[in-house]
Amino acid sequence: MDRHNWRSLLRPILVRLLQALLVALIVGALGFALMAALPGDQAFRLAAARYGPDMGDATAAALVREELGLDRPRAVQFLDWIGQLLRLDLGHSLVTGEPVLEELRGQLGHTLSLAAVALPLSAILGLPLGILSGLHPSGLADRVTLGLSVLLRAVPAYALGLLLVAVFSIRLGWLPPAGFEGWREFILPGLTLALGLAALSARVTRDSVAAVSTAPYMAFARWKGLPERAAVLRHGLRNAAIPVVALLGFQLIGLIEGLIIVESLFSWPGIGHALVHAIFARDVPVVQGAALLMGLLFVLVNALVDLACATIDPRRARAGA
């Protein structure tokens, strides 16, 4: 790739970096406000979290107040808070007293592994149905897929998960309803997430394939004597993939939201579950840390999608060559 092409990649990366900064600022500001909104003296709370509930007395509170400068003006404290956040110093959990980053590290792994199962699964479910429907618009496959995807997009994710548990673990007894030890435990939460995502990607794939298969360059490829298979593989797929990959970014909002719900439903020990529980427990540093990680994850994957779009698009690739 030459300079021209690099520059076209640089801009989206810069935009995403700005977005990451914005995420940190929003989450940090809300975290700071949440901390201030907690009832009681912050110093006592933090002292109890750091030194254990028995040590959270006036002396410890005074030490904490001194060290963290809790008697400084709010504005100064806020800047300090944001500064710590930007250095990824997320503080200690108010409940367990552990450093937030340590707690979230393990949970992030669980969340990522669930997402790593759900995304390919949704592709396996959604893409073939979408391509099949797009090649024969208003055929049987198209109509069945349409009905299914409309229904799946209207079902609340928790109800879908419950239904899958009812069928596959209670009625049929094939799969465990909860837990996270082996590969079988991944199937139901992964499937719940994947079905919701596939409902959308199947439709977009279908529309994209239908549009590309009637495009003039496809007609030309056939007319110049390319066999159907070569025309589809060489000219069709790549063009049809652009909107599908672009949609991925949009879908990831759904994935992040779905993760929060599905993890809560299946008691999956990931960040989404941690976030919901920390909100219950009023554990502000964990709420902030979990939200920050999910937000940054969202930005990161979006950046990857941007790059994928830029490399797939045949028009852009040729503009650089």
Partner: peptide, 19 residues
């Protein structure tokens, strides 16, 4: 700024003020 975060995440952060 509102779109920088997934919307459910933002709603959750606000809900955290008074679940």
């Amino acid at each position: 700024a509102v779109l920088a975060l997934p919307s459910l995440l933002l709603v959750l952060l606000l809900v955290a003020f008074a679940p």
